[in-house]
Design a protein around this nucleic acid. Sequence first.
DNA 1: TGACAATACAAGTTATAACATGTAATCTCC
DNA 2: GGAGATTACATGTTATAACTTGTATTGTCA
Lengths: 155, 155
Amino acid sequence: MPPDLREELKQTKPFARRSAEAAVSVMRTAAVLEHELNDVLKPHGLTLTQYNVLRILRGAGNSGLCGREVGERLISRVPDVSRLLERMEDTGVVSRERDDNDRRHVTARITEAGRRLLEAVTPELEVVERARFGRLSESALQTMITALANVRDRV
Amino acid sequence: MPPDLREELKQTKPFARRSAEAAVSVMRTAAVLEHELNDVLKPHGLTLTQYNVLRILRGAGNSGLCGREVGERLISRVPDVSRLLERMEDTGVVSRERDDNDRRHVTARITEAGRRLLEAVTPELEVVERARFGRLSESALQTMITALANVRDRV
DNA sequence: TGACAATACAAGTTATAACATGTAATCTCC
DNA sequence: GGAGATTACATGTTATAACTTGTATTGTCA
């Protein structure tokens, strides 16, 4: 039996509504997940955001993506993609190049080092993912995914 | 029908596993929620973390809580409760007092101004909560809560 | 009871997030 | 084709998060 959230956060009072408990559950679960994933990534010199950028750029292939496009694909929107990519260029996992067709654009691409780093850390993250979500059935996962999509898609 | 997460993040490839999609769903939903709640709180000069501290301290009543206890009750653990409470003391929503019985402790309490602020913002946050979670049935909410508790409670 | 460990917080430092503003390049449309 | 709007990014600033180290107080136990 999973522990009660109220007990986990040492709350004295019960939640006023089930929707309030659901909201806190989502945020608390994300915090636990992100913390654990960041712990896995830290020895590799990556944050979770940077890891996501690498996955996005790998998915984009040789043509790369401009900063705005990277920002649109991130799980949580970062208003400062410029410096995020700049830091990643400093560590050598990303290359940046000003586009000749439209000189406003800076195209970012994953480097070979970035690709190797990505391949090294991904299985470690999958261990966390399986440990966390492995006990849920496929149908329970699908139910959760659909319900969360409903939460994001408000009027 | 809720929009697909893959489309939402403009992913070209489908998720490798349902558990991977579930993990991203949780983090993405929390990010959307937290952003919206912070937007509501900002005009009141509060962050979501500070709002949670106020709720925690109101729940503790007159006896208050020491910094460590506040930290244990927060949704996402903050390693720097000292300065968080210090900032909140500066804005007048919290008072701090060194405990005479154990002079290592600093007891924090919500002030009357903090209580009023809490009462002012809570209904605004509930509007967000209802808009986001209102379409889900009580049983769907309960299913989600249980599933998320399972995710947090790994071996 | 006195040395050592543990606890609770404070403070210093670095890195990042958040927000606003600035700037160069491109687009629009009369 | 040129003024103004738009886009994409860079930069400056402030605030907060994350991590480390420091310090005072209390607890433990030989």
